[in-house]
Design a binder for these strands. Sequence first.
DNA 1: GTCACTGATCACATT
DNA 2: GATCAGTGAC
Length: 666
Amino acid sequence: MKHHDPSRRFLPESAVDYESCLNPAQLEAVLTREGPLLVVAGAGSGKTRTVTYRVARLVEDGIPPSSILLLTFTRKASQEMLHRCTELLDDRCRRVAGGTFHSFAHAVLRRHAGRIGFPEGYAIVDRSDAESLIAALRKEFHSRHRERSFPTKKTLADIFSRSVNKGRDVQDIVLDEYPHLGEDIESIVELQHRYAASKMEHRVVDYDDLLLLLERLLREAQDIRAKSAETYRYILVDEYQDTNILQAKILHLIGADHRNVMVVGDDSQSIYAFRGANFENIMRFPEMFPGTRIIKLEENYRSTQPILDVTNAIIAQARRKFTKHLFTRNAGGMVPQLVQTPNEKSQSRWVIDTVAQLRRCGIRLGRIAVLFRASYHSFDLEIELNREGIAFIKVGGFKFMESAHVKDVLAHLRVLANPYDRISWLRILMLLDRIGPKTAQAAYDAVVRVGRGHEGLFAGKDRCIVRKELDGLRDLFRRLEAIPRSHPGELGTAVLAYYKPLAEKMYDDHPRRVRDLEQLTAIMERYESLESFLADMALEPPTAAADNHLTGEWRDPDRLTLSTVHSAKGLEWDAVFVLWALDGRFPSQYALEKEKDLEEELRLMYVAATRARERLYFLCPAYAFDRATGTVLNRPARFVADLPENLLERVYLEGMDGSSGFEMRW
DNA sequence: GTCACTGATCACATT
DNA sequence: GATCAGTGAC
C-alpha cells in the first residue's frame, strides 16, 4: 500500500504533532480529507486514536465543527472520542455532532417526522415496552389458536426487529430462522400490522422505527435529505462492521452528495449479526461509494506477542477468511492459559485467588476484567466476590432501567409528556389497589375520549370502589401541572414523593429502591426538559446494572469489571479472564447447529481475547449440566480446545473442594 | 374485576 | 428463574 508522504509541509503551524503520534497508515487516514475512506482497523490498532486525530485535524483545518458528524455504536463512545479530541486540540471539538444512528435519527425526526405522516411528539419505547405492547395485542391471537401455543412476546418482538434490521419480510424471517413457527405465519404477519398501527395510535416509536422512519424521510423528502447532506459535510462512522443495511442506506442518503464519508471497522469483530448487523457492509462500502480509498491498520499496540498469537490462531479458524494479519512489537510476556477446573465454584475461586495475586503484583482492580458470554454466567462469581469484599462493577445484563421501581416512576413522567402512552397509563393505574387491567383500560379510554391529555383522568366517572385511589393520582398530576417542564428534577421529586409509599407497600427492600430513585432524580436535574430526559433514558439508559451505584463514573480504578463480551467491545484491560469457555456456554448452545451462528461465536471469542493487554486466562469448568437442554457440557470451547500447548498453556486443577487450597501455576 | 396462587414452558448477546 | 395461562376466593 502506498501512503502519503507524511511530510511536515502539510501542516506548517499545526498545534498537534500528528507525525510522531501516528504510524504511516493512521496518518494517511487522518490526512485524507476529502472523498470516501474505509479504514479496516484490527483489534488494538489505534482505531480510536485515528478517529480522534482525524476529527481534530478537520477542525484544525477550519471545517466548522457542527458540520462534522461522528456516529458511534454507543453515545458514550462518541463522548469519549470528542473528549479526547478536545484535549488534543481545543474546545471547538465539543461542538462536533456526535451520537448513535438512533440518537441522530431522533434528532432529525423530532423536527420532521410530520413530513412522512408521523406525529412529531412521539415517545421512544425501549425493548421491554415494545414487548408489553405486543403482549397486549397477542392475547386475542392466542384465544384464536387454542390448540397450540402462540409465540411469546419476546419471540415476536425478535421477529419484527429482525425483519426491520435485515430489510426482509416477516414471512422470510420466520421461514428462515423460526421454521417451527411456520403454521402461525399469517397470524404473525397480521400481528405485525396491528403492532405498527398500535404504535401510531399511541404515538410511540421503537428503536427500529427510528431507523426505518429516518430512512423513509430522507428518501421521500428530498429537501430534508439535501439539507442534512449540506449540514453534515464530513461524516465518520465507527464500528461499521456492526451496522445494518438500513444504517448503510441512511449513510448513503446523507453522504452521497459530498462523499466525505469515513467508516472504520473490523470485519473479524462483527458480533451483532443476531440483531441484523451485516459485516458485509464493510465489503460493500467501496461499491456504495466508488473511489473509496482503503486503509488497513494492522499494527497492534495493545497486546503482547503471545496473546496476539492466540487471537490470530482463534480467528484463523473462521471459514470466512480475513485478510488482515496483526503484528506487534511488544514481544515477550506470559503465554495465555486454559484453566480447567472441576466445577463452577472452583472456577470462581480460581479467578478470585488469581485476582488477589495480580493485585499483589501491583495491578489495580480497574485494570482487570472478567468477561462472559451471557450475563447470568457470572452469578456465582458475584456471590463469591461479595463474600470476599472485592468491589466490582457489572456491565451488561439486567439494567437499572429495567427494574420495576424505575419503570414505575418513569411511567408517570411519560404520561405527563405523552398522554397517549397507553403502556405507561396502564402501568401507573395498575399500581393502585383494586385497579386491574379492565379498570385501567377504562380509565385510559376515558383519557383518550376526552382528548385533553392527562386531564382526561379528571373527567371520567369512576366506580366508587376505586375513587380514593384515583384521587391520589389526580392530586399528583395537579401538582405536576404546576411545575414547568423545563425543571425535570422537580417533576421527579414530586413523583417520587407520591411513589414512595407505594414502594414501601410493595417491596420489602424499599430502602434500596428509593435510593435508586433518588439517584434518578439527581440525573433528572441535569436535563433541560422532561422530553430530552425521557428520550435519553430510552436511547442511552445508564449503563450500570441495577445494584451498582449510578454515580456515572463506572471506570473506577478500584473495582473489578464484570462484563458480557458484547459490552466489552472497544475496551481493554491488563488482565482478562474469560469465564465458561465451555462448548454449550461459550460458544452458546443455540449457535452450535448453524455454521453462520457458530462463526459469530468465534468472532465473539476473538473479541473477548483481544481485550487483553498482558494476561489472558480462559476458564473451563470440566463439567456442567445445562438445564435448558438437559445436556451435559464437558468439552472446552472448540475455538481454543485444540490450540497447541506452546500457544495456550493447559492448567488442570484437581481435587478442589471449591473453598480453599490448591496448586496454582503461573 | 382483582388478586394470589398453580403448574407448564422456555431460557443469549443490545441500540 | 421469568413468563404465561388457568383457577378459585374475595
